[in-house]
Simulated assay, not measured.
Amino acid sequence: MRNFDQETEQALHLYRVFSRAFRSVTEHSLRDIKAHGLHHTEFSVLELLYHKGRQPLQQIGSSILLASGSVTYVIDKLEKNGMIDRQPCPHDRRVTYAVLTEKGKALIERIFPLHAEVIRHAVSGLDAEEKEQAIRLLRKLGLEAERRLK
């Protein structure tokens, strides 16, 4: 086993701790979503449309970090189940919007508050001040990691 300098060891430790914490919190979210009979990508699309309104199909994938082929599959499934409709853009034939139906809106309005409570519970190991600190630090970490990819 190779010996790393202290900074590298610390970076590796941070990565392991961050990964485990993310996995644990995510598991709360995934279990809740599954309990409502949805896949996490379906929930993500419904949540996006609920909070942001109609969205061009071409932008949904980047908004919820999903590959474009997967977006088509999820949109097709949600449309088949009556949760969303496709709406052509009146000004640009190349653009099609995803829009919540009344059925989709009723579902997300019913389950999102319950989901939010699950997330609140999952991160309740930190007090309000610690959460704000974690938000600042994780944002800083993520932005710098993204910058270094370029």
Rank of each mutant, 00 (worst) to 15 (best):
M1C: 13
N3T: 12
T8V: 15
E9K: 13
L12Y: 08
L14W: 11
L14V: 15
R16W: 14
S19W: 12
V25W: 03
H28T: 11
H28C: 05
L30V: 11
L30Y: 15
R31S: 09
D32G: 07
I33Q: 03
K34L: 08
G37Y: 00
V45M: 05
L48V: 08
H51P: 01
H51K: 07
K52R: 14
K52E: 02
R54E: 14
R54V: 03
Q55D: 13
Q55V: 05
Q58A: 02
Q58M: 03
Q59V: 13
L66Q: 13
L66E: 04
A67W: 00
S68V: 11
S68W: 03
S68Y: 07
S70M: 02
S70R: 08
S70C: 06
Y73L: 14
V74G: 00
D76C: 01
D76F: 03
D76S: 14
K77Y: 06
K77I: 06
K77S: 07
E79D: 15
E79M: 14
N81P: 09
I84H: 00
Q87D: 00
Q87T: 03
P88F: 00
P90C: 06
P90V: 15
V95F: 15
V99Q: 05
F112Y: 12
L114A: 09
V118I: 10
V118E: 12
R120P: 00
H121S: 12
H121K: 12
H121I: 15
V123H: 01
V123Y: 01
G125N: 04
L126Y: 15
L126F: 08
E129V: 06
E129C: 06
E129A: 15
E132M: 03
Q133G: 15
Q133M: 07
I135R: 08
R136S: 04
G142C: 04
G142Y: 11
A145D: 02
E146P: 01
K150W: 07
